[in-house]
Simulated assay, not measured.
Amino acid sequence: MVTTDTTPTTRPLPSTLSLSLARTRLEVREFFREKEALIFTFFFPIVFLGIFSAVFGDGDFGNGVNAATYFTPGMIASGIFLSSFQSLAMSIALERDMGLLKRLRGTPMPPQAYFAGKIGLVLVTSIAQIVLLLGISGLLLGVDLPTEPARWLDFGWIFVLGTASGSVLGIAFSVVPKSGKAASAVVTPVVLLLQFISGVYFVYSSLPEWMRGVASVFPLKWLAQGMRSVFLPAGFEVNEPAGSWQLGTGAIVLTVWLVVGLIVAQRVFRWTRQDAG
């Protein structure tokens, strides 16, 4: 007598890593389908670099540095902050308002995969944006890119700390907007204010002392200053208010904001709207 086993077989659930990669691919596809995100996050620094280069031309910013060379590091820092803090704060607030986060929380997908997908989005868009910025700067605007390995090592840790701190702060700040529609009105002014006082749109040393003092509390100032240390000529640090790049101080400030952002995000993050109970 022949018997057949009709016991249903259960497939193992996908690993957190595979789910994280899948979420990253989904996040990237959705990001590049959104025209608003492309214009105001991805292409925004690139457009402004072109505008500043055209307006200031070959004006000397000190040590023979022209407008394109001076503003390139600031636009890189701005792009990282837009892709991390602004993008995550706005997109998560919108997804919470639409009920998407609540539905995702009810699936077997681990929360880590959701956040890994967001961070993966930040890394992909930031790297793509930087490559495009550097390509335009070097090929079209005549900016001399650094060739010393030490400078690119500095670029690496500044990029990692900048994207990490911006990402966790964006996740934490996503609870501030009361609705998805209000996210842009709440987040964008904060980002613009920090860009204006952090040496992204102006020569940092020309800003009032009190404004520089306020900017030094926040991460974007140190991200922009760190990028200037990578892309501006040797000796240019004498034009900084402190007379040096203060890379050690910048690393400490960015690390502190990373830790603070992680703690705050863990405590305040919500999967549902505040009025949902």
Rank of each mutant, 00 (worst) to 15 (best):
M1D: 13
P8R: 05
P8E: 08
T10D: 10
R11F: 04
R11K: 05
T16N: 13
L17K: 04
R23D: 15
R25M: 01
E27L: 05
R33Y: 05
E34I: 11
E36T: 13
T41P: 12
T41R: 07
P45F: 07
F56A: 03
N63T: 03
N63H: 14
N66M: 01
A67W: 11
A68R: 00
T69E: 08
T69S: 14
Y70E: 13
P73Q: 05
M75W: 06
M75R: 01
G79V: 00
I80D: 07
S83W: 02
S83Y: 03
S84A: 05
L88K: 04
I92A: 06
R96D: 08
D97W: 00
L100D: 10
L101K: 01
K102I: 06
L104M: 10
M109L: 14
P110S: 11
Y114P: 00
F115Y: 11
G117T: 02
L121M: 09
V122C: 00
S126M: 04
A128N: 10
L132M: 15
I136K: 01
S137A: 14
L141G: 02
G142Y: 13
V143W: 07
D144C: 08
P146W: 12
T147G: 09
T147E: 06
P149F: 13
W152S: 04
F155V: 08
L161C: 02
L169W: 09
I171W: 11
A172W: 00
A172S: 06
V176R: 00
G180P: 02
K181G: 06
A183T: 14
A183E: 12
A185M: 14
P189K: 04
V191D: 00
L192C: 09
L192Q: 07
F196D: 02
I197C: 03
I197A: 06
Y201E: 01
S205G: 11
S205F: 12
S205I: 12
E209G: 14
W210H: 04
W210G: 06
G213E: 03
G213T: 13
K221S: 09
L223N: 05
L223C: 12
L223K: 05
S229Y: 11
F231D: 05
N239Y: 15
N239C: 01
E240K: 02
P241F: 05
A242W: 07
G248Y: 07
T249K: 15
T249S: 08
G250N: 04
I252T: 12
V253W: 03
T255N: 00
L258W: 09
V260C: 04
V264H: 00
Q266H: 09
F269L: 00
F269R: 03
F269A: 08
R270Y: 09
T272K: 11
T272D: 14
R273N: 03
Q274S: 13
D275C: 07
